[in-house]
Design a protein around this nucleic acid. Sequence first.
DNA 1: TTTATATTAGTAATCATTACTAATTTTATC
DNA 2: GATAAAATTAGTAATGATTACTAATATAAA
Lengths: 131, 131
Amino acid sequence: MAAEKTIKYSRQREAIVNFLKGRKDHPTADFIYRHIREDYPNISLGTVYRNLALLEELGMVAKISCNDGNEHYDPNVEPHYHFICRDCGSVLDIEVSNLDFINTLAEKDFEGKIYGHNAYFYGICKDCLKK
Amino acid sequence: MAAEKTIKYSRQREAIVNFLKGRKDHPTADFIYRHIREDYPNISLGTVYRNLALLEELGMVAKISCNDGNEHYDPNVEPHYHFICRDCGSVLDIEVSNLDFINTLAEKDFEGKIYGHNAYFYGICKDCLKK
DNA sequence: TTTATATTAGTAATCATTACTAATTTTATC
DNA sequence: GATAAAATTAGTAATGATTACTAATATAAA
């Protein structure tokens, strides 16, 4: 029997959610920490990690592992694809038509069961193209 | 001017390459270390990491970051797709027809330049389906 | 063989993330 | 509004994967 833990409000958590919602680049925990510090100088990095993990558990935030060694966080939990800029490293949303049919393509000669996929696109973002 | 470093043979490196070539599951550095230790009890984990990095630099090994927190290594450097089993966590090759056209789909309404993509398929592998 | 240099084993350092703990906040109840 | 139980926090310590350092060893060319 899981002892459900009731969740109490915290300003730190609210600040984290608000900060995330205001960004398009899916920052890392450390980036969030350094920026929220401007408003809450005493917040600790552990609090940021703990809340991000909780928010993920609650389905309010998605963790994006995009192979740069750091976890990024996305307030948009709807399935969608990401683009990673080779120059600046930022992780951006990219709108792509539904690609679920590639699961069927992949399952064609595969002896296991495929439930889903994850895809990242690589290239140069709009801002870096200008430079 | 880059001072090119000549590369000398080492049995440890050879053992790493051979071990990797004999596997289908793209092991982690630590897994390779633990197995090569059976033949070379004195090999150190650092040697495994250093050689894997060198082999990657030489284009003889590919590093696969598949979101399970550990880097996996693949002796097949030709572009191909991977499958990750939700049960046992193993990373397997999966044969899929060329999917480069999804780059074009993704670039449609995107203001940057797309050079490539990376996709992972998730599900249950053949062996775990049996259980 | 000799000699220069790459490589190694072993260990220490780094970096992101997680765990721990006493003090503080939140929130339900009086 | 005061009280009390429980969640949350800040601060710090611990973890785990990976990288860096160094003196000793292995390789390869002369």
